[in-house]
C-alpha cells in the first residue's frame, strides 16, 4: 500500500526561489521500517532538491527493485518515477535520458540491485557517462527477502542469523572510479551534513555522478557482528574532506585557505568548496582515491566524502553529438524524410 501525506503545512514555511516549500518536494509516506537509513537518504534528497530550487516535475526518479528502489515513491511526488526491473534501472535510465536530455535523472538503487544482479548494467552506465545521479543505498543485506548477505558485505561479516560473508566484497566506488565516472563519493545516511551538499553538487554536476551511501538496515543488519550497523559505522567512519555546496547565485564570503581548502567550479557556475581533512587529499586523481579507499578499509575504516570530480568531463550526449532539442520533442517534420527521399532510396534497389 502507499499512503499520501497530508498536504497541510505551516503557512509560513520557508520557500525557495520557485516559491515552493520543503513539503512540495516530499512524496508518499514511507512504508520502510522505522529507523531505516533509506528514509534519511530520502529526506536528504528532499532537502537538496528544495535548496537547489529544482522544479520537481523536471526530475525523473529511477529505480530498480528492493527496499532502496521503493524510496523514490517517498520523495518528489510531482515528478514521474519508474520502478523498473531488478538490476536493470541503468538501462532504462539510459533510454529515458537519451529521449530527453533536459530532465534531471535521480536514480536510487541498492547493493543487491547494483552489485549483484545489476553489476553489468552498473558498469556500463558508468562507462557510457550518462548525465545522472546514481545513488546506492548500501546496507550489505537483502532487506525485502529478509536478510541475506549482499555482495557489498565485508568479508567475514555475519548476518543476523549468523551466516558469514565468505567472499571478497564489491566496492562500487572503486568500480566507478576505475570505469571513469566523473563524480564519485561515499557518504552515510546518518550524516546529513555531509550527504546533502554531496547530493546538491552531484545534481549540479554534468555527467555521471555516483554516491554510495552507507545506509544501515535496522531490521536485518544492525546487530553487533555487522559492519553496516549504526554503531559500527559511527565508530569506523573517516572523512576525507568536508564539502560545502555554494549555489550559483550565492556570494562566497569566507576565504579559501590554500592547501586545506579547494573550490571547484561546476558546469552551471555553482561551486564545491572542499575542506581537506586528510593531508594528502586530492579530487582529480582517481587511482589515488582507489588506493585511499583500500588503505582505510584495511585499517577497518570506512572512508567517506568526495573521492573524485572532473567537472569538465564529457557526458553521453556530448560524446554522441545529440541535437540540443530533446529527442522526444522532435516532430514528424524533423524525423520523417518523406516520399521524395524514399523514391531515391527505391532507385538504389533496382
Amino acid at each position: 500500500m502507499s499512503f499520501q501525506k497530508s498536504k497541510f503545512h505551516h503557512p509560513r514555511l520557508p520557500v525557495n526561489d520557485l516559491g515552493l516549500n520543503y513539503r512540495d518536494y516530499e512524496g508518499a509516506l514511507s512504508t520502510l521500517c522505522a529507523g531505516c537509513g533509506h528514509d534519511s537518504i530520502t529526506s536528504a534528497i528532499v532537502q537538496a532538491c528544495f535548496e537547489l530550487s529544482l522544479p520537481p516535475h523536471q526530475v525523473a526518479k529511477m529505480s530498480g527493485i528492493g527496499c532502496s528502489s521503493k524510496a523514490p515513491n517517498y520523495f518528489l511526488n510531482k515528478a514521474h518515477g519508474f520502478n523498473t526491473v531488478h538490476g536493470r534501472m541503468p538501462s532504462v535510465t539510459t533510454g529515458a535520458n537519451l529521449a530527453n536530455r533536459e530532465l534531471t535523472y535521480l536514480a536510487m538503487s541498492g547493493d543487491g540491485d547494483s552489485a549483484s544482479i545489476g553489476l553489468g548494467q552498473f558498469a556500463h552506465v558508468v562507462r557510457r557517462q550518462l548525465n545522472m545521479l546514481y545513488m546506492v543505498a548500501n546496507n550489505g543485506v537483502y532487506g525485502l527477502t529478509k536478510g541475506q548477505l549482499a555482495a557489498t558485505a565485508d568479508r567475514g561479516m555475519k548476518n543476523k542469523v549468523g551466516e558469514q560473508s565468505l567472499f571478497t566484497d564489491i566496492d562500487l566506488c572503486v568500480m566507478a572510479l576505475q570505469l571513469g565516472a566523473t563524480f564519485v563519493a561515499r557518504s552515510f545516511s546518518g550524516d546529513k551534513k555531509q550527504l546533502v551538499p554531496l547530493i546538491k553538487a552531484a545534481i549540479s554536476h554534468q555527467g555521471f555522478a555516483f554516491i554510495d551511501i552507507i545506509s544501515p538496515c535496522v531490521t536485518f543488519n544492525n546487530h553487533p557482528d555487522s559492519t553496516r550497523s549504526y554503531d559500527y559505522v559511527h565508530q569506523h567512519i573517516t572523512t576525507a574532506a568536508v564539502t560545502d555546496f555554494v549555489p550559483v547565485k550565492q556570494e562566497i564570503t569566507s576565504d579559501c585557505a590554500a592547501g586545506i581548502c579547494e573550490d571547484i567550479c561546476l558546469h552551471d557556475g555553482s561551486l564545491m568548496r572542499i575542506h581537506k581533512l586528510q593531508p594528502d587529499y586530492e579530487t582529480k586523481n582517481a587511482m589515488k582515491a582507489i588506493v585511499d579507499i583500500e588503505t582505510h578499509k584495511k585499517k577497518g575504516e570506512i572512508l567517506t566524502g568526495l573521492f573524485y570530480l572532473d567537472a569538465n568531463g564529457e557526458h553521453y550526449h556530448e560524446i554522441n553529438n545529440t541535437t540540443d532539442t530533446p529527442l522526444n520533442k522532435l516532430t514528424q517534420d524533423d524525423l520523417c524524410p518523406g516520399s521524395r527521399v524514399l523514391s531515391g532510396i527505391n532507385d538504389s534497389f533496382r
Binding site: 525523473a60 519508474f82 523498473t84 526491473v85 536493470r88 541503468p90 538501462s91 532504462v92 535510465t93 539510459t94 533510454g95 529515458a96 535520458n97 537519451l98 529521449a99 530527453n100 530532465l103 548494467q121 529527442l327 522526444n328
Partner: peptide, 11 residues
C-alpha cells in the same frame, strides 16, 4: 531496457 526507458519518456 534502453528502448523501454526512451518510450516511457515519450521518444
Amino acid at each position: 531496457g534502453i528502448a523501454i526507458g526512451a518510450s516511457w519518456n515519450g521518444a
